[in-house]
């Protein structure tokens, strides 16, 4: 298990500063939520921290080591990302076997067959699915494959960018249960982006509320119900979510 921290992360696209200076710390093995309105910069934080974007200032450290100082191979074995859209994130003409074996081959890992089978078992898919293609799977099964691909290199930190937003509630339940189980078993540290505070409450220990590229407040999950949020936007978001759920 490794902690993760971001210090003064900032990035500008053209003339637009999308992240002025974002900082937060996550403990080893914690599940940390990132919420806020669309366009507030949540995905950008994850894309910077995973070096999908590399022209940014500041630091992101996993277990004390800067992601910028990690060679690509080491970075892939330290952090992995799961995206919202299980359709877009898998190569349409690669079988599941190819999708899972490619990272193993690139990293020169032994026992490839055994690792692939373990990953399939970990995410609750039958081994026969190794020879299927993405279009032969349901949305939830595709997201399981994306998670299998993320965990096959045994990373320490998983970035989950709205991993269930495109799924039906019935399928979301399966994926959330899977993510909880994997964290218990493997000690992952999670950052999870979601627009759904019920999902955050179910999964996370703490969460950061973002608005216009700023973290306006970091809150424990208990703040959703106990009214302890101080930042006006955090209060507004929590109130709207409660009203929407019909709990208010």
């Amino acid at each position: 298990m490794k902690p993760f921290e971001v210090e003064n992360m900032s990035i500008t696209f053209g003339k637009v500063t999308v992240l002025p200076a974002v900082s937060f710390q996550i403990e080893a093995g914690e599940c940390f939520g990132l919420v806020g309105e669309s366009g507030s910069g949540k995905s950008t934080v994850l894309r910077c921290a995973s070096m999908l974007l590399n022209l940014w200032d500041g630091e992101a450290r996993i277990g004390g080591k800067s992601v910028k100082d990690m060679p690509a191979m080491e970075r892939c074995r330290t952090l992995q990302m799961v995206f919202q859209d299980p359709y877009g994130s898998l190569h349409p003409r690669h079988s599941i076997r190819t999708t899972l074996s490619e990272p193993l081959r690139i990293h020169g890992l032994d026992n490839q067959q055994q690792r692939m089978e373990q990953a399939m078992t970990d995410v609750g898919l039958p081994l026969s699915f190794l020879d299927r293609f993405p279009h032969q799977l349901s949305g939830g099964q595709r997201q399981r494959v994306a998670i299998a691909r993320a965990l096959i290199l045994e990373p320490d930190v998983l970035f989950l960018d709205e991993p269930t937003s495109a799924l039906d509630v019935s399928v979301q339940a399966e994926i959330l249960n899977l993510l909880v189980r994997l964290r218990d078993e493997k000690g992952f540290t999670y950052i999870m982006v979601s627009h759904d505070l019920a999902v955050i409450d179910h999964m996370c220990d703490r969460f950061a509320v973002m608005k216009s590229g700023h973290i306006v407040e970091v809150l424990p999950r208990t703040a959703i119900l106990d009214g302890s949020a101080k930042a006006p936007y955090a209060q507004e978001l929590i109130a709207a979510s409660l009203a929407y759920e019909g709990a208010a």
Partner: peptide
Amino acid sequence: AAQPRIGGPRRPLPVL
């Protein structure tokens, strides 16, 4: 039942 709820129990969500 599959839907997580704010303040709900943290046991595995019932699946369909």
